[in-house]
Design a protein around this nucleic acid. Sequence first.
RNA 1: CGGGGCGUAGCGCAGCCUGGUAGCGCACCUGGUUCGGGACCAGGGAGUCGGAGGUUCAAAUCCUCUCGCCCCGACCA
Length: 585
Amino acid sequence: MLFSRALIPTVKEAPSDANNVSHTLLVRGGYIRRVGAGMYDFLPLGLRVLKKVEGIVREEMDRAGALEILMPALLPADYFKESGRWDRFGDTLFRVTDRKGADLHLGPTHEEIVTDIARREIRSYRDMPRNLYQIQTKFRDEPRPRGGLLRGREFMMKDAYSFDATEEGAKKSYDDMRAAYMRTFDRMGLTYRLVAADSGAMGGSTSAEFQILADSGEDAIVACDSCEYAANVEVATVKAPPAAASGAAPAALTKVHTPKAKTIEEITAFLKLPASQMLKSLLYVAKDQVVMAVVRGDHDVNEIRLARALGVDEVFLASDADVTKATGADVGFAGPVGFKGRLLVDRAAAAVENAATGANASDHHYTGVSRGRDYEGEVVDIRLATTGDLCPACDKGKLKSYRGIEGGHIFILGTHYSAQMGATYLDEAQQKKPIVMGCYGIGVSRLVATAIEQHHDENGIMWPMSLAPYHVHIVTVGQDEAVIGAAKSLYHGLWSDGVEVLWDDRDERPGVKFKDADLLGIPLRVTIGAKSLAGGHVELKPRSERDPKKAELVPVGEATERVARMVHEALAPAPRASRTSVLPG
RNA sequence: CGGGGCGUAGCGCAGCCUGGUAGCGCACCUGGUUCGGGACCAGGGAGUCGGAGGUUCAAAUCCUCUCGCCCCGACCA
C-alpha cells in the first residue's frame, strides 16, 4: 500500500476522551475513530489488525476441530424468555421492538440460540462431540463503556460452544479449548495468565479466564510465585495463617479519643500502630439486612466471598445514612465491639489480639480489642487475596498481585441450558439425556487494544508481527530517482514473497515520516535515502530498536530476501518453551 | 443508577464569573524558502457557540428544560 493513496489520518494530539494508551494510540495512529459512546469506526489500518486477530482465532479454532457458523445478531426475544435471561440480563440487553410490536434484542452472547441449534440437530450420542463457533459483532448496553476498544457497546467477539454426551467429554472439550486458546494468545505475542475465575451468572462450574497482563487492566489477579496457582482475586483463596498465639499480654479494652481519624491511614498514624493491628469494619446491605464485615486493616473485603458467606447473590456497601443508623456513629468509626447485628469476621482479623478498631461512636476508637472477650461474630474467609499471602495450593509459595484484561474466558456450562431448553440426545441405552455444554469466548476487538497495552513505547505502537497491519514499512527520504527505483523494487519484491508492505512515498519531510512510522508501529522499517543508497545500502530497523543510529545497513541486492526471511521467521508459531502462561491445577 | 465535569472551526482548547464585532494552537488551501526525527515566512478558507424555550435594546456568556459525552464507583469478551 502506498501511503500517499491510503487513508491513515494520524494526529499529533491525543483525543480528549482517551484515558489509556491503546485508545490514544489507535486514534492518533488513524486506526479507529469514535462514532458514539462505545462505538468505533475501524479505518483501513484498524480493520487490517482486527482481521489479523480474527484470522489467528479462526485458524486455531479450526485446528481444534471447531466448526464456524454464523448466528443472527438480531434475535427474537423468545429464546431469552425461554431461559429466563430476558429478565435476568437486565439493562445490559439492547432491546428493540419491530413494527408489529414484537420484542427483539441484539445478541450479547448466544447460549440460547446455539442450544436451539443443538436441540434440533443433535439427537444421538454419535453426533457428539461438536463445537460450534462464530466471530460476530456483539451488543451490550454497558453501564459505562470505556477505554476505547477495551469495553465497547458494540464489539467483536468469538464465541464457541461445545456439546458432549458426558461430563468427561465436556471436560475434554474444555481442555482442548484451553490448549487452543493458549496457542492463540501465544501467536499474538501476548503475556497472560490463565486464572481460576468466578463462573458468574452463567451457571457454570469449571471456569478459567485468560488474563492479559497490563497495568491498566480492570481485573485484579494473584499468582503464586512458586507453583502454578493463579486466580482472579474474586475467587482466590488464601491459606489461613498459622494460628500462633502471639504471647502478647492481653491489654485492657480502652476507649480513646481519635478526632477526625476516619481512614485506616489516619488512625494508624494517630495511634502509631501498623495497619495489621487494626480491624477494618465495613457495613454491607444484603437483602435489606445491614451486616458488618470485619477484616484486618491491611486487607480488603472480597464482596463475592462475603455474599457467598451470607448466602445471598450480591451485597452492596451500605450508604452513609445506613452506617450511621446501624452504628450510631459517623462513617469511619464502626467496629465489632458492641455491634448489634449480624457480624462476619475474617479469619485473619479474628486472630488479631489487642487490636484497634472503631468504637461505634464518632471520633472514638477502642484499643486492646480481642475476639472472644470483646466481640464474637462468625469467623469466615471473606478477604481479598493480595501480594504476600500464602498460596492455597502449595506449601512454600506466596501470592503476587497483577492487573489483567480479560481476553478470553472458558467454562463448562454443564446441562444448565440444555436441560432448560430441552436439548437432549439418546445414549447407547436409548436413554434421553441433556447435552453437556461448554462455552468459550475471546474478545476479538478488545485484543486489538490489549496488544497495544502490552506493546508500545512513548513514541507509539509496537505491533507483534502477527497482528501488525503491515509487516514492513518502507520510508523513502527525498524523491531521488535512484531512491524511488530501489523502493519500488523492494516493495514489489516483498509483496511477491508474501510480505505485506506499506511504503511511505509521501512528499513529506523525513522527520514527519519517521514520527508517523513510530506511531503506526509496523515491526520492520526500511529507510531508503540517497546517502546510504550511494554506498549500496538500505537501512533496516525493527520498531523495537529505539536508537535510530542502530539501524542496520543492508546491501540493496539482499534487502528483499533478508527482510522477507525476518518476517516469515517472526510469523512462525512460537516454540512451546517461550510460553508465558501459568496453568491452574 | 449515585457523585463530579464537559459540549465554541476537522482535532485540542481559551472566551462565560462581570452580556455588546467569536479567538488561539494543530490540521487544511495558495505562494515562497526549506528538506535524515512532527520546518519557517506571508496570505487564505472554515464555527447554527449541542438543542429548545426564556430574560434583555442586546445572550457563547444569565435562567429553565432537554440531548449528548467524559471521569470516579456497582457489571463483563
